[in-house]
Computed example of a mutant assay.
Amino acid sequence: MSETQKRNRAVNIIFLTIIGIFTVFAYKTTLMWMYDRYMGADSYYSHGFIVPFISLYFIYLQKENLAQIKPQNSVIGLIILFFALLLHLLGTLLYIFSISGFSIFFLIIGLSLFLFGKEVSKIIWFPLLFLVFMFPLPEAMISLVSFPLKIFAAKAGVWIISILGIPIYLEGFNILIPAGPLLVGNPCSGLRSLIAFLALGSIFAYLEPVSIIKKWVLFLISIPIALLSNIVRIPILILVSNYWGLEAAGPDTLVHTGSGMLVFVLGFFLIFFAAKALEWRT
């Protein structure tokens, strides 16, 4: 590495440090909001803490390719930085923290382009885009998507149990069984699984040595896999409640938590086998 490159790298590191300090100060309220969304009892973004570390790992894997590229500043990055600033100001003025949160995403994209150029950003495009999974969607959008998912999960679960011959009735989100009423809550909607499996599906799609079309197929197939995996959970909770009492499958019980883990494990293997199927005869 030449002296000029070393000097430019040192300048970029100093600049990034300054920007980092400025970002923490300017986005203090937004970052606190993101933390609260991550740590919420019914959080859909508990995975948000590990997303930046996954991105950094994928960037690290490209270290040899990055070492061969000479960083060049890009004006496009400056435009994106300006756009990110406007988004943050808009989110702050309207008290819509999700807008301010997503402005951090554009801030990172803009910094990559402005400091290192298009060639470097092209190499690390996936780690940069993957960061989108750490920014919570607005609560209104969460409710909009969660509502039909809960209806679908409840109807599917009731249909499966009715096939087994157990008396069951669905009224809204209330499932009536001989042992008593069960309420299909937000955690059982499957939205949490959907968000997590979209992130997981994107990783599989990025790593699999298949064509671009098959990568998109693998990414999109994570949606029905997430829904299918979650459908398995509802009948399990209903069966346990029916035979061992409502308290046996209540929130924070081993069965409730374990069924959530089962959903993830099942979905993971379904995505894995889908990836291998697409890889076949590539």
Rank of each mutant, 00 (worst) to 15 (best):
M141I: 15
L137V: 12
L246K: 13
T282H: 06
L237H: 00
A41I: 04
L176D: 13
A26E: 09
F126W: 09
I123L: 11
N186Q: 15
I142N: 06
I124N: 02
I59P: 06
R37H: 07
V232R: 06
G91M: 03
S143R: 13
I236W: 03
F204Y: 09
S146V: 13
A275Y: 05
K155V: 08
R9F: 15
T282W: 06
P52S: 09
R7F: 10
A67E: 15
H47L: 08
S189D: 11
L129Q: 08
M134Q: 05
A205V: 05
F49P: 08
F102G: 00
I234Y: 08
L128C: 02
I79W: 11
S162H: 07
I19G: 05
I124K: 04
E247H: 03
I69V: 05
P167T: 01
E247C: 03
F272N: 15
L16T: 02
V158M: 01
S211E: 02
Y95A: 15
I160E: 06
I21M: 14
V217E: 07
I50N: 05
S202Q: 04
L183F: 10
L182Y: 00
T17K: 09
N186F: 13
Q72W: 08
S98I: 05
V158R: 00
G157F: 01
P209S: 02
P52M: 06
L56D: 14
G260C: 07
V184K: 02
Q72L: 12
L93R: 14
R192C: 08
L89V: 15
I54Q: 10
P136I: 03
V255A: 10
I14L: 13
R9C: 15
C188R: 02
I203W: 01
F268S: 05
N12V: 12
S46N: 04
Q72H: 11
V75D: 06
S100C: 13
I69D: 02
S193E: 09
P148N: 12
N65H: 13
T23K: 02
N230G: 11
Q5F: 13
I19Q: 03
F272E: 15
S2N: 10
G101A: 04
L85T: 09
K6C: 14
N73R: 11
F135K: 12
T30M: 03
Y44P: 07
F219H: 02
L200G: 01
